[in-house]
Simulated assay, not measured.
Amino acid sequence: MESHDAGPGRFGRLLTVGEVATRSGVAVSTLHFYETKGLIESIRSSGNQRRYAREVLRRVAIIKVAQRVGIPLSEIQAALSTLPQGRTPTATDWKALSEKWKDDLDARIRHLQDLRDHLDGCIGCGCLSIETCPLRNPWDMLSKQGPGPRLLDP
Protein backbone atom coordinates (compact mmCIF):
# COMPACT_ATOMS: atom_id res chain seq x y z
CA MET A 1 0.00 0.00 0.00
CA GLU A 2 1.44 3.28 -1.03
CA SER A 3 1.08 6.52 0.85
CA HIS A 4 -0.73 9.18 -1.14
CA ASP A 5 -2.49 12.39 -0.44
CA ALA A 6 -6.16 11.41 -0.20
CA GLY A 7 -7.19 14.29 -2.45
CA PRO A 8 -8.77 13.80 -5.87
CA GLY A 9 -5.55 13.61 -7.98
CA ARG A 10 -5.27 10.85 -10.57
CA PHE A 11 -7.54 8.54 -8.56
CA GLY A 12 -10.59 10.82 -8.61
CA ARG A 13 -12.47 11.24 -5.36
CA LEU A 14 -11.32 8.51 -3.03
CA LEU A 15 -13.69 6.68 -0.70
CA THR A 16 -13.13 5.94 2.96
CA VAL A 17 -13.41 2.37 4.18
CA GLY A 18 -16.71 3.31 5.85
CA GLU A 19 -18.11 4.69 2.58
CA VAL A 20 -17.11 1.53 0.71
CA ALA A 21 -18.65 -0.63 3.43
CA THR A 22 -21.92 1.31 3.34
CA ARG A 23 -22.17 1.41 -0.45
CA SER A 24 -21.14 -2.23 -0.98
CA GLY A 25 -23.08 -3.71 1.91
CA VAL A 26 -20.09 -5.50 3.43
CA ALA A 27 -18.48 -4.98 6.82
CA VAL A 28 -15.33 -2.92 7.23
CA SER A 29 -13.61 -6.04 8.59
CA THR A 30 -14.55 -7.87 5.38
CA LEU A 31 -12.95 -5.13 3.29
CA HIS A 32 -9.79 -5.40 5.38
CA PHE A 33 -9.85 -9.19 4.89
CA TYR A 34 -10.31 -8.84 1.12
CA GLU A 35 -7.36 -6.50 1.08
CA THR A 36 -5.10 -8.94 2.96
CA LYS A 37 -6.06 -11.61 0.40
CA GLY A 38 -5.17 -9.36 -2.53
CA LEU A 39 -8.75 -9.08 -3.78
CA ILE A 40 -8.89 -5.29 -3.48
CA GLU A 41 -6.36 -2.61 -2.73
CA SER A 42 -6.29 0.72 -1.02
CA ILE A 43 -3.91 3.59 -0.82
CA ARG A 44 -2.99 5.40 2.36
CA SER A 45 -3.71 9.00 3.12
CA SER A 46 -1.06 11.20 4.68
CA GLY A 47 -2.76 10.31 7.99
CA ASN A 48 -2.31 6.57 7.18
CA GLN A 49 -6.02 5.98 6.63
CA ARG A 50 -7.22 3.62 3.93
CA ARG A 51 -8.68 5.22 0.83
CA TYR A 52 -10.23 3.36 -2.06
CA ALA A 53 -10.72 4.25 -5.70
CA ARG A 54 -14.36 4.08 -6.77
CA GLU A 55 -13.67 1.04 -8.96
CA VAL A 56 -13.33 -1.03 -5.78
CA LEU A 57 -17.13 -1.00 -5.48
CA ARG A 58 -17.48 -3.06 -8.67
CA ARG A 59 -14.70 -5.41 -7.55
CA VAL A 60 -16.47 -5.99 -4.23
CA ALA A 61 -19.71 -6.69 -6.12
CA ILE A 62 -17.91 -9.25 -8.29
CA ILE A 63 -16.40 -10.88 -5.21
CA LYS A 64 -19.78 -11.14 -3.49
CA VAL A 65 -21.50 -12.63 -6.56
CA ALA A 66 -18.69 -15.13 -7.07
CA GLN A 67 -18.77 -16.11 -3.40
CA ARG A 68 -22.53 -16.54 -3.52
CA VAL A 69 -22.20 -19.17 -6.25
CA GLY A 70 -19.44 -20.92 -4.33
CA ILE A 71 -16.25 -19.78 -6.04
CA PRO A 72 -13.33 -20.04 -3.59
CA LEU A 73 -11.58 -16.78 -2.72
CA SER A 74 -8.32 -18.08 -4.18
CA GLU A 75 -10.00 -18.48 -7.58
CA ILE A 76 -11.66 -15.09 -7.28
CA GLN A 77 -8.28 -13.51 -6.50
CA ALA A 78 -6.65 -15.23 -9.48
CA ALA A 79 -9.44 -14.04 -11.78
CA LEU A 80 -9.35 -10.46 -10.49
CA SER A 81 -5.58 -10.36 -10.94
CA THR A 82 -6.17 -10.66 -14.70
CA LEU A 83 -8.03 -7.34 -14.73
CA PRO A 84 -6.25 -4.02 -15.16
CA GLN A 85 -5.81 -2.03 -11.96
CA GLY A 86 -7.23 1.46 -11.72
CA ARG A 87 -10.37 1.04 -13.78
CA THR A 88 -13.83 -0.21 -13.06
CA PRO A 89 -14.37 -3.79 -14.26
CA THR A 90 -16.71 -3.79 -17.25
CA ALA A 91 -19.50 -6.08 -18.41
CA THR A 92 -16.96 -7.61 -20.80
CA ASP A 93 -14.62 -8.27 -17.87
CA TRP A 94 -17.44 -9.93 -15.95
CA LYS A 95 -18.34 -12.11 -18.94
CA ALA A 96 -14.73 -13.31 -19.22
CA LEU A 97 -14.54 -14.05 -15.48
CA SER A 98 -17.87 -15.86 -15.35
CA GLU A 99 -17.02 -18.01 -18.39
CA LYS A 100 -13.99 -19.35 -16.52
CA TRP A 101 -16.22 -20.44 -13.64
CA LYS A 102 -19.11 -21.86 -15.66
CA ASP A 103 -17.76 -25.41 -16.18
CA ASP A 104 -16.90 -25.74 -12.49
CA LEU A 105 -20.37 -24.55 -11.50
CA ASP A 106 -22.04 -26.95 -13.95
CA ALA A 107 -20.03 -29.86 -12.49
CA ARG A 108 -21.00 -28.87 -8.95
CA ILE A 109 -24.66 -28.60 -9.95
CA ARG A 110 -24.57 -32.10 -11.49
CA HIS A 111 -22.90 -33.44 -8.34
CA LEU A 112 -25.51 -31.82 -6.08
CA GLN A 113 -28.34 -33.16 -8.25
CA ASP A 114 -26.82 -36.64 -8.01
CA LEU A 115 -26.57 -36.29 -4.23
CA ARG A 116 -30.19 -35.13 -4.07
CA ASP A 117 -31.43 -37.97 -6.28
CA HIS A 118 -29.63 -40.67 -4.29
CA LEU A 119 -29.82 -39.23 -0.80
CA ASP A 120 -32.87 -41.23 0.28
CA GLY A 121 -31.51 -44.56 -0.96
CA CYS A 122 -28.10 -44.83 0.63
CA ILE A 123 -25.69 -42.99 2.87
CA GLY A 124 -23.02 -44.02 0.42
CA CYS A 125 -20.90 -46.35 2.50
CA GLY A 126 -23.08 -49.19 3.69
CA CYS A 127 -26.66 -50.15 3.93
CA LEU A 128 -29.70 -48.58 5.40
CA SER A 129 -31.98 -50.98 3.58
CA ILE A 130 -31.68 -54.69 2.84
CA GLU A 131 -33.53 -54.14 -0.45
CA THR A 132 -31.35 -51.27 -1.72
CA CYS A 133 -27.80 -51.80 -0.55
CA PRO A 134 -27.19 -55.31 -1.96
CA LEU A 135 -27.78 -53.75 -5.39
CA ARG A 136 -25.68 -50.64 -4.85
CA ASN A 137 -22.93 -52.09 -2.68
CA PRO A 138 -23.06 -55.89 -2.88
CA TRP A 139 -21.13 -57.65 -0.10
CA ASP A 140 -19.99 -54.22 1.13
CA MET A 141 -17.37 -54.02 -1.65
CA LEU A 142 -16.98 -50.28 -1.11
CA SER A 143 -15.52 -50.88 2.36
CA LYS A 144 -12.27 -51.89 0.64
CA GLN A 145 -11.89 -48.28 -0.52
CA GLY A 146 -11.83 -47.04 3.05
CA PRO A 147 -14.25 -45.61 5.60
CA GLY A 148 -16.90 -43.03 4.94
CA PRO A 149 -19.34 -42.32 2.11
CA ARG A 150 -18.28 -43.69 -1.27
CA LEU A 151 -21.25 -43.65 -3.64
CA LEU A 152 -22.27 -40.05 -3.11
CA ASP A 153 -18.81 -38.50 -3.24
CA PRO A 154 -16.88 -38.47 -6.52
Rank of each mutant, 00 (worst) to 15 (best):
Q145S: 12
A61Y: 06
S46R: 10
E75S: 14
R116H: 15
A79S: 15
V69W: 12
R116D: 13
R44G: 03
P147L: 11
K102C: 06
G12S: 07
A21L: 05
K64F: 00
F11T: 06
R68T: 11
C127A: 10
T92H: 10
K37L: 15
G9P: 08
N48T: 03
R51W: 01
S42R: 01
A6M: 07
G18K: 09
P72W: 13
L135K: 15
V20A: 01
K64L: 07
K95Q: 14
D106K: 10
T36A: 03
V20K: 00
D117T: 06
P134W: 07
V60F: 06
R50K: 10
T30A: 14
Y34L: 01
I123R: 11
L39G: 00
G70P: 07
L80A: 01
L142S: 06
V69M: 15
L135W: 10
I40Q: 05
S3K: 10
Q113Y: 11
K100A: 11
R10E: 14
V69F: 15
E2L: 05
G25W: 11
G86M: 03
G148W: 08
Q77K: 12
G47V: 00
S29A: 07
R44I: 01
F11P: 00
A107T: 14
L142C: 05
A79K: 01
P138Y: 05
V20H: 01
T90R: 06
M141H: 14
R50N: 08
N48C: 02
V17W: 07
L128P: 01
S3D: 08
A53T: 05
L115H: 09
T92F: 03
L128F: 02
R116W: 14
V65T: 12
R58V: 09
L112S: 14
L142I: 08
A53F: 00
V56G: 02
R58K: 13
L128T: 13
P154V: 04
M141T: 12
Y34A: 01
P149H: 03
S74A: 15
Q67D: 04
G25V: 05
E75T: 09
A53S: 11
I63M: 01
A66I: 03
D117V: 00
P8F: 05
G70C: 06
M1R: 09
P147E: 15
E19R: 06
M141A: 14
T30H: 03
V28M: 02
D106F: 13
A61F: 04
L15Q: 03
K102M: 09
T36E: 12
D114R: 13
I40G: 00
S45H: 04
H111E: 15
H4W: 08
E2Y: 02
V20M: 02
D106C: 08
N48W: 04
G38L: 09
M141Q: 14
V56S: 09
S46W: 00
P154M: 04
D153C: 06
L39K: 00
V65S: 08
G70E: 09
G148D: 10
S81W: 08
E131L: 11
R54Q: 13
V28P: 05
A78H: 12
W94H: 05
K37I: 01
G126W: 11
A27S: 06
L119V: 10
M1A: 10
R59Q: 12
L152P: 00
T36L: 03
L57I: 05
A78N: 12
G70A: 08
D5M: 05
A79F: 05
T92Y: 05
C133L: 00
C122Q: 02
L14C: 04
I43R: 11
